[in-house]
Simulated scan of single mutants.
Amino acid sequence: MATIKDIAKKAGVSPATVSRVLNYDQDLSVTDKTKKRVFEAAELLNYQPKKKSQKTAQKIAILTWYNEQEELDDIYYLSIRLGAEKKIQEIGYEPQQFSNQQALPTPPEYVGMIAIGKFSPEQMTMIADTELPTVFVDLNTLDDGFDSVTTNFHYPVKQIVDHFQSVGINDIGMLAGQELTSDQKLELSDQRYLTFRNIMRDRQLLNPNLVRTGNFTVKSGHDMMLEMIDQLDFQLPHAIFAANDALAIGALHALKERNIAVPARVSIIGFNDSTVAKYFSPQLSSVKVDTELMGQKSVELLLDRLETERTVPINLNIGTELILRESSK
């Protein structure tokens, strides 16, 4: 794992600044540009470079559904994008990022597209109209006729509940996330919450009072955790499952503010195992989602589609790994 000093050197900032950025220090006064540099340096230093092949430098578009600020609030998608960009370069193509606010790329300048995030049916129709072979990442589009790369949710959520119960904890709460497609036309269900709810209900452990739902941001995790502390007092659950690492980090900040010991009183496990999880204090237990692999496989699917002219869509569902660190028993 890269050290704080390694990241500081690559980002061109001090080690203290790196530490505060990776810990989402709300009192730190640096620009979003500096934060982005730190996050990208941390991600890139954790990638293993591979040898490039020699091909004509044709362009592959990377379409992102989020803006730059949202990418900083939850670096999950940043990690996927960087993984895709590196793979595109390795196979000899040129990556070009597009936001959802820009006109969509078209052939012949572009040979294909990687669409990262959540898109509404209307947006998928517009993407189909470009006639570019497209692979979606983090959205199962098999029924829509597109290739896609997604993450398995059922098994890791079951692992988390099993782990908490194995250490004697049955009062398990959750900080769930909610989001909309970038055109604000479709509200998306959090599959992690639906899985958690079903597992807890089947085990007769589900308590709706121990669940909060908000945005997938550090601020949202902080606010929901404070609300839970104030409303539940001594009935605060002994374990919290957060739907992503940003929510978990916000919750850890709130628990620290209220002098609630982690993990002695409350254990927390996040989801995604972003680079930040390793550098936060206490180090965050989390479900590792191999975002580099997701980005890589999306490009490989696109390349397969280009080279074979395959018409049958494929969905690759990537497995996960539960990583236990200091934030949980």
Results as ranks from 00 to 15, higher is better:
I88A: 02
I88R: 01
E90F: 04
E90Y: 04
I91A: 12
G92D: 14
Y93V: 08
Y93D: 00
Y93P: 00
Y93L: 05
E94T: 15
E94W: 06
E94L: 14
P95A: 10
Q96F: 13
Q97S: 13
Q97R: 11
Q97T: 14
Q97N: 10
S99I: 11
Q102P: 02
A103D: 15
A103M: 12
L104T: 04
L104S: 05
P105W: 00
P105G: 08
T106M: 13
P107T: 13
P107A: 14
P108C: 10
P108G: 14
E109W: 08
Y110C: 06
Y110V: 02
V111W: 04
V111I: 15
V111M: 14
G112T: 11
G112L: 02
G112K: 01
M113V: 06
I114M: 13
I114Q: 03
I116D: 02
G117W: 00
G117M: 09
G117T: 03
G117A: 06
K118T: 08
K118N: 11
K118F: 04
F119K: 00
F119W: 10
S120D: 04
P121Q: 10
P121Y: 14
E122Q: 15
Q123H: 11
Q123F: 06
M124Q: 11
T125S: 10
M126Y: 15
A128R: 09
A128N: 08
T130Y: 08
T130H: 01
E131M: 09
E131S: 11
L132A: 08
L132I: 02
P133I: 04
P133L: 05
P133A: 03
T134M: 03
T134I: 07
T134C: 13
T134H: 07
V135Q: 04
F136L: 13
F136I: 03
F136P: 02
F136K: 07
F136S: 02
V137N: 09
D138I: 04
D138H: 12
L139V: 12
N140Q: 11
T141C: 12
T141Q: 06
T141A: 12
T141N: 08
L142F: 13
L142M: 11
